[in-house]
Design a protein around this nucleic acid. Structure first.
Length: 1081
RNA sequence: GCCCAUGUGGCGGAAUUGGUAGACGCAGCAGACUCAAAAUCUGCCGUUCGCAAGGGCGUGAAGGUUCGAUUCCUUUCGUGGGCACCA
């Protein structure tokens, strides 16, 4: 029989699906194991070969753990909110929900083709309201919590309020607190909330009228259109991740992340011990506060630098320097933070004309403004010590500021020396001290003189949490009189309203700001305007909160199931279309849900279907009408026919009734929201949450994905606990990983989950880079393309789209291939010529795979051509999972040949006469010791390699094993069967197929993993390499139980050793048992 | 610029804790089978000197530690990733 991988893989994938073999239960007697992949953003380009690398690795490990008897959770989902879908919507007008849905379907089909063991029942999508309901809910937990500095953990903000009300704090008394206005109280609380709002800077592009992502800003101008971009202050939401800085550092000790990963996170958090110190400013009352980690260098300060945004800049600038400073500030406004820090070569700055005074020696120190100092870090001002800091030194040189040397010969006048080991000079009371010892002495003195104090600082800043975008989670927040009010949990999800236009809103707000009827919740007229008192009840006819919520849920459901006629009429009534009155559809009034209601005029409009003619219904309708009338509501009824045949008449009738009706008592608020407002304008928050919101907690939802009453049942999170193995790329090292660690800690603090680190072990998969190809012009302003030569100006290159399909491994592009590519060029190509025809060389470069770089390869084609099993093993065979590597399909043949060879251990090749039916060659015989040795060597190697994620060497071990079995002509079931089980994680389809060919009935996916028997591999002797002076000259086979002396004797008798000794006596003979022998002459 | 990773044949890579550098595979070369092709099998395959036996050199570069260094240390160069609104 032939190895027909397409049929086999399809057959087993269908069977496994039908049997629900990947379904995972939260109840099991087996030990649990949780393997998680970083879920993908479903891009329009589909899955490329880079994605599956980590997924295959996690799949192998999951299947391996399952064979080893674990209950394995290995889910998959989609991080489906994000900027690309929105940009695509802007370009094409397709709604992000539509494109996202389509992309996810493509991704899933592609993933399934590779044969992953996901339990799709547990799939999550961050853009699904059933999911983001809980993202919003967790946001509310963050909003309603503060970080208690004594307990070092999150506590409900209500506890803080209680404390303020009863005891006050060091800034105000309880009495003062109680007399604050609501707004004043809320502003104080906002400074403590874990999710809070304040003004922050964004990239503002006036021409596009929108806020841009850093990604969209290139060289200070917008990527689209090249318009100028500048900083603008806007109200933004933030997460107080800085409160968790210390715990995020401590937590690193408890998790298995690579050292480099921990290092990156530590650097990101950037904890530093230093001092804050105040300097008097000459001729000014204000003081300049600087932060420094090196107070020992206080006498080496030659100038001060303040950030351009520093609040003192305006007030200290001298009249003489005013114009200069203003020009400079204008320049800085156009610079991105990255540019400001990165371009160390171009030194910019401006003297303010002001001087600070060094309190220890009275020296006057010029104060400069320079972009390399950032407002957000420390105090936004530094004391510059040119002899000890390279950037300060370069600055001093550039502006001819004289440099004071406080470290004697350690400073050479050419470059700064940041040492702490020098003895201080020119430093007054610090003279003669070792710098690292002087740090403490200097701070003590500052504290003693009340000039400054010790201060711990973090480089990390609070995380910006709002985006002026559409395609993200709406904030469950409404604003009234500058106060943010959270929605009730019962009101979630706050669904993202449908929009038709994705452009920015006014004043840089997000697209949601354009939907007036969604944003504006101002009562019409407002309760305040009507002079109404706040009510304790919900709804506008007295009903309990429970009733209200229940009815609201019903109403919401109803809205999705409008009849055709209801929908026709709604299109006419919505958006204050009729006489300027606002209608609501399926809006609850106490227990009743009328079709349409105008609250302002207490008018209900009903469209009746035929069933309203039934007796029972008539009775009910009458009772309802009565009750509503008692509460001031009048009603007009129409039939479906009215709407279908005489819509205009219907509308006219409604309009007349509205205009005629006088309402004595106006209906109360339409939503429980308004009862909580203080009146006036009430608006929804219009920004949405960033991409990392949904991905900060998704690992919890997989544990209990369908739960409608809580984000994840505590029982489920207690059972699955931490993610045991998390696989993903290093590009998420600081962003996603820090955010999800913080969210986990908050949820833990609030007692909602039982662990405070989400990921026990992290494995970083490398990136698969694609090869991009470039044409080269013969010189910079040329339009003639020539063969690539090394060491030419990169400005002379242009990208050859989809080059990887047409260029050979040496970068050679033949004229015929070029014509095949169908590329149209406005350039002339000067072809070279040899015996094989006309050609040029193009430049080859490996880059991150991306649709825009035309270097993407797609896994489907490879699965079709070679099968999923081959594809899986090939991706693993490319190299270590952690390493980045260039993609090249050339080697896939080798892996495919290996699987076919494995197949031929069971089935002979068909001869032509057999028409595809080769003989079965496996036999049920007892294996020899030699054969068992091959098997057990393989068991040991595969198990070890799989455990340590060395999948590439495991694949090679399989190859060696199959080669050895062929050489040994071993076709024995007992051996082959065990090999198949070892192979299940790597190539599940072929393993299952051959398993059944051997006559087994159940699935191989749960077969018992073979146990390694070390007794079979015991050797009594070893072939030792013998080196003379470290160079191997010969090999000697020696028994393992020899001692040093016996070995020396044998070695010295050896002919070759004697030849190299040339009659001299050896100095020393090194014998490392089981390793090697070295003779030193 | 700063932080992290990384550099081994024509190519992907292997090498236990400092102990035979180049496993396994691709490509290439030579051969077997075949009318032929495919498939399969056998041999060669870092570089250099040599008919051979055998030797020199060789893990980005330069230095160091060691009986012995791809592995540890110092310096340096190249490449990839991240740098707070791509996800």
């Amino acid at each position: 029989m032939e190895y027909k991988f397409n049929e086999i893989e399809k057959k087993w994938q269908e069977k496994w699906k039908a049997d629900k073999v990947y379904s995972v239960s939260n109840e099991s007697t087996k030990p649990k194991y949780y393997v998680l992949d970083m879920f993908p953003y479903p891009s329009g380009a589909g899955l490329h070969v880079g994605h599956p690398l980590g997924y295959i690795a996690s799949d192998i490990y999951s299947r391996y753990k399952r064979l080893k008897g674990f209950n394995v959770l290995h889910p998959m989902g989609f991080d489906s909110f994000g900027l690309p879908a929105e940009q695509y919507a802007l370009e094409t007008g397709q709604h992000p929900a539509e494109t996202t849905k389509k992309n996810i379907a493509t991704f899933k089909a592609q993933l399934d083709k590779i044969g992953f063991c996901y339990d799709w029942e547990r799939e999550v999508q961050t853009s699904d309201p059933n999911y983001y309901k809980w993202t919003q809910w967790i946001f509310l937990q963050l909003y309603n919590s503060y970080f208690c500095n004594t307990q070092k953990k999150a506590r409900p903000i209500s506890e803080l309020v209680k404390k303020y009300e009863t005891k006050g704090c060091n800034k105000f008394t309880a009495e003062q607190w109680n007399n604050f206005t609501k707004k004043e109280q809320e502003d104080i609380l906002m400074n403590r909330r874990l999710a809070f709002s304040k003004y922050g800077e964004v990239n503002w592009c006036e021409a596009l009228g929108t806020v841009l992502a850093n990604d969209e800003v290139v060289n200070g101008v917008s990527e689209r259109g090249g318009h100028p971009v500048e900083k603008k202050k806007m109200r933004q939401w933030y997460l107080r991740i800085t409160a968790y800085a210390d715990r995020l550092l401590e937590g690193l000790e408890t998790v298995e992340f690579s050292d480099s990963m921990k290092e990156m996170q530590r650097n990101w958090i950037g904890k530093s011990q230093g001092a804050e110190m105040d300097f008097e400013i000459k001729g000014n009352d204000k003081k300049l506060r600087v932060y420094t980690t090196r107070p020992d260098t206080i006498f080496g300060v030659d100038f001060m630098v303040v950030a351009p945004e520093h609040e003192l800049v305006a007030s200290i600038t001298s009249a003489h320097q005013k114009d200069e400073i203003e020009k400079y500030l204008q320049y800085v406004k156009s610079r991105s933070e990255r540019e400001r820090l990165a371009e160390a070569k171009t030194i910019t700055g401006c003297f303010t004309g002001a001087y600070a005074i060094n309190p220890f020696n009275g020296r006057q120190i010029p104060i400069w403004v320079a972009e390399y100092v950032l407002a957000g870090y420390g105090t936004g001002a530094i004391m510059a010590v040119p002899c000890g800091d390279q950037r300060d030194f370069a600055f001093a040189q550039h502006f001819n500021i004289p440099v004071t040397n406080i470290i004697g010969s350690h400073f050479n006048g050419q470059e700064a020396n940041a040492t702490k080991e020098a003895i201080l000079e020119n430093s007054d009371f610090l003279n003669g001290l070792l710098m690292k010892d002087a740090i403490g002495v200097a701070v003590d003195k500052m504290e003693e003189m009340r000039l400054g104090k010790r201060q711990v600082n973090y480089r990390m800043r609070d995380a910006g949490f709002s985006r002026q975008r559409y395609w993200g989670e709406p904030f469950p927040i409404i604003w009234t009189d500058g106060i943010a009010l959270p929605l009730d949990a019962e009101e979630l999800p706050l669904e993202l309203p449908h929009v038709d236009k994705y452009g920015p809103g006014p004043n840089g707000e997000g697209p949601l700001a354009n939907i007036k009827e969604w944003v504006d919740l101002t009562p019409n007229p407002s309760p305040k305007e009507r002079g109404m008192q706040k009510q304790d009840s919900y709804g506008y006819i007295n009903s309990t909160k429970d009733e209200w919520i229940k009815t609201l849920a019903f109403a919401k459901e109803n809205r999705k199931n409008l009849t055709e006629e209801e929908d026709i009429l709604w299109q006419e009534l919505r958006n204050k279309n009729i006489a300027g009155y606002k209608f609501r559809r399926q809006h609850p009034i106490a227990g009743y849900i009328p079709d349409f209601v105008c609250l302002e005029k207490k008018l209900i409009v009903e469209i009746d279907g035929d069933y309203h003619n039934q007796e029972e219904q008539k009775k009910y309708d009458a009772a309802r009408e009565n009750w509503l009338a008692e509460n001031g509501f009048s009603m007009i009824r129409f039939t479906n026919q009215d709407v279908n045949n005489a819509l205009q008449t219907v509308i006219k009738q409604i309009e007349e009734t509205l205009n005629k009706k006088v309402v004595t008592e106006v209906a109360e608020s339409n939503s429980p929201l308004l009862g909580r407002g203080v009146g006036g304008e009430v608006k929804r928050e219009t920004s949405t949450m960033p991409g990392y919101a949904g991905s900060s907690w998704y690992f919890l939802r997989y544990m209990d994905p369908k739960n409608a009453t809580t984000f994840c049942d505590r029982k489920a999170s207690d059972y699955w606990n931490q993610v045991d193995l998390y696989i993903g790329g290093t590009e998420h090292a600081v962003g996603h990983l820090l955010y999800s660690r913080m969210w986990t800690k908050v949820l833990f603090d609030l007692g909602l989950i039982g662990f405070d680190e989400p990921f026990r072990k992290l494995l970083n998969q490398g990136m698969i880079t694609g090869k991009s190809y470039f044409f080269m012009f013969d010189h910079v302003y040329s339009d003639k393309i020539v063969s690539y030569r090394k060491a030419d100006n990169p400005a002379t290159f242009t990208r050859f789209k989809y080059g990887h399909q047409f260029v050979d491994a040496n970068g050679r592009l033949s004229k015929s291939e070029f014509e095949k590519s169908g590329t149209e060029l406005q350039y002339e190509i000067r072809w070279d010529k040899d015996e094989q025809g006309e050609f040029i060389f193009v430049k080859e470069e490996s880059e991150k795979m991306s649709k825009s770089k035309f270097n993407v390869d797609n896994p489907d084609e490879l699965c079709d051509k070679y099968g999923a099993d081959t594809f899986r093993m090939y991706e693993m065979f490319l190299g270590p999972v952690e390493a980045s590597k260039p993609w090249d399909t050339k080697g896939i043949e080798g892996v495919h040949r290996f699987l076919r060879k494995l197949w031929r251990l069971f089935n002979a090749d068909p001869s032509p006469s057999e028409k595809g039916r080769g003989a079965v060659v496996w036999v049920d015989e007892k294996p020899t010791d030699a054969e068992l040795k091959i098997l057990h060597r393989t068991i040991k190697k595969i198990e070890e390699d799989t455990e340590k994620f060395s999948f590439n060497t495991a694949v090679s071990a399989f190859m060696i094993c199959v080669n050895d079995l062929f050489d040994a002509k071993c076709h024995k079931k007992e051996v082959l069967e065990k090999i198949l089980i070892l192979l299940v994680p790597y190539a599940p389809h072929i393993a299952e197929e051959l398993w059944h060919q051997l006559g087994n009935l159940g699935t191989i996916l749960d077969a018992p993993y073979p146990t390694f028997n070390p007794a079979l591999l015991v050797e009594s002797s070893k072939e030792y390499p013998v080196s003379i002076n470290g160079k191997v000259r010969t090999n000697l086979s020696l028994a393992l139980d020899l001692d040093q002396k016996q070995v020396e004797e044998i070695v010295l008798q050896n002919e070759i050793v004697q030849k190299w000794l040339e009659g001299k006596a050896p100095k020393k003979i090194i014998y490392v048992k089981n390793k090697m022998i070295n003779v030193v002459v």
